[in-house]
Simulated scan of single mutants.
Amino acid sequence: MRQVLLIIDVQSTFSPPEWLVDGVRALSAMIPTIASVQLHDEQVTPFERQLGWHPAAEDESLVEADKVFIKHGYRQTAETIEYIRALGVERVLVCGLQTETCVLAAGFALFDAGLMPTLITDLTVGSSLDRSGKMGIALWKHHFGNVITRAQVLAERGD
């Protein structure tokens, strides 16, 4: 199956757990990989004004990727979606931080673009509201249906 890994906001700003970074790194070494990094630009997304906090203005992905896209809010950029669409993949494996916000927003963007978003449930961490990610995983299953574990991805590849 032609697929790509989309890593959502695994960056210093959000203090990802080491197990997540290690797991995503191991998988990204085997599959074409795209990463998003969320940066702050108050002119684009009013985090400070509306929420009283904001991500860093400068940061980078903690996982090496074939292509990195910068975003300034919860959703993926049109450029990211078009890049993925141009790859002609059958499935987009999604992992990363903030399962019920930024990861879920990526799922909606991918779904609306006619792609097949598939959440890697053991390579995601929820926001401070639900660090387990269970709420986001349940929302993902409800809206998109497609979930998988890292072990299942490896088994499909024969690894």
Rank of each mutant, 00 (worst) to 15 (best):
residue 152 Q to Y: 08
residue 96 G to M: 05
residue 37 V to H: 00
residue 126 G to T: 07
residue 31 I to E: 04
residue 17 P to Q: 12
residue 47 F to D: 08
residue 15 S to N: 14
residue 141 K to V: 12
residue 20 L to A: 03
residue 6 L to S: 00
residue 96 G to C: 07
residue 25 R to C: 09
residue 48 E to K: 11
residue 81 I to L: 07
residue 70 I to S: 09
residue 99 T to G: 04
residue 4 V to W: 00
residue 16 P to I: 05
residue 96 G to F: 01
residue 104 L to I: 07
residue 46 P to R: 08
residue 26 A to I: 10
residue 22 D to N: 15
residue 30 M to L: 12
residue 117 P to E: 01
residue 144 F to Q: 02
residue 103 V to L: 05
residue 17 P to S: 13
residue 85 R to P: 01
residue 18 E to P: 11
residue 88 G to R: 07
residue 91 R to K: 11
residue 93 L to H: 01
residue 5 L to D: 00
residue 31 I to S: 09
residue 30 M to D: 08
residue 87 L to Y: 05
residue 60 E to W: 11
residue 58 E to S: 14
residue 106 A to T: 02
residue 69 F to M: 02
residue 86 A to K: 11
residue 115 L to P: 01
residue 151 A to Y: 09
residue 13 T to P: 06
residue 29 A to R: 11
residue 88 G to T: 08
residue 111 F to K: 11
residue 18 E to V: 13
residue 74 Y to S: 13
residue 102 C to D: 02
residue 44 V to C: 10
residue 59 D to G: 03
residue 8 I to W: 01
residue 39 L to N: 05
residue 21 V to C: 10
residue 7 I to K: 04
residue 16 P to T: 02
residue 63 V to E: 02
residue 46 P to G: 07
residue 146 N to V: 14
residue 54 H to I: 14
residue 105 A to P: 05
residue 37 V to D: 00
residue 88 G to H: 07
residue 86 A to R: 11
residue 65 A to Y: 06
residue 146 N to P: 11
residue 86 A to G: 11
residue 142 H to S: 14
residue 151 A to Q: 10
residue 6 L to G: 02
residue 67 K to Q: 15
residue 56 A to F: 10
residue 103 V to R: 05
residue 155 A to S: 14
residue 157 R to H: 12
residue 18 E to K: 15
residue 149 T to A: 05
residue 97 L to D: 02
residue 157 R to S: 13
residue 35 A to F: 07
residue 31 I to D: 06
residue 140 W to M: 05
residue 131 R to D: 10
residue 50 Q to V: 15
residue 69 F to R: 05
residue 104 L to F: 08
residue 154 L to M: 09
residue 132 S to V: 11
residue 123 L to I: 06
residue 80 T to M: 09
residue 63 V to H: 04
residue 26 A to P: 10
residue 17 P to V: 14
residue 100 E to S: 02
residue 58 E to K: 12
residue 62 L to P: 07
residue 42 E to G: 08
residue 92 V to G: 01
residue 131 R to Y: 13
residue 134 K to C: 13
residue 97 L to W: 03
residue 114 G to T: 02
residue 76 Q to P: 12
residue 114 G to H: 04
residue 3 Q to V: 10
residue 147 V to E: 04
residue 43 Q to P: 15
residue 22 D to M: 13
residue 106 A to K: 00
residue 124 T to P: 06
residue 67 K to D: 06
residue 133 G to S: 09
residue 41 D to M: 08
residue 131 R to K: 12
residue 56 A to G: 10
residue 19 W to Q: 11
residue 37 V to Y: 02
residue 72 H to M: 08
residue 25 R to M: 08
residue 17 P to D: 15
residue 125 V to R: 09
residue 70 I to L: 11
residue 25 R to E: 10
residue 32 P to V: 04
residue 143 H to K: 12
residue 137 I to Y: 06
residue 142 H to L: 15
residue 117 P to C: 04
residue 29 A to T: 09
residue 80 T to K: 05
residue 114 G to Y: 01
residue 140 W to L: 04
residue 102 C to W: 06
residue 94 V to I: 00
residue 23 G to A: 03
residue 146 N to K: 12
residue 7 I to P: 01
residue 102 C to V: 06
residue 79 E to F: 00
residue 100 E to Y: 01
residue 127 S to A: 15
residue 68 V to K: 03
residue 95 C to T: 10
residue 37 V to E: 04
residue 136 G to E: 03
residue 67 K to F: 10
residue 139 L to W: 15
residue 51 L to T: 13
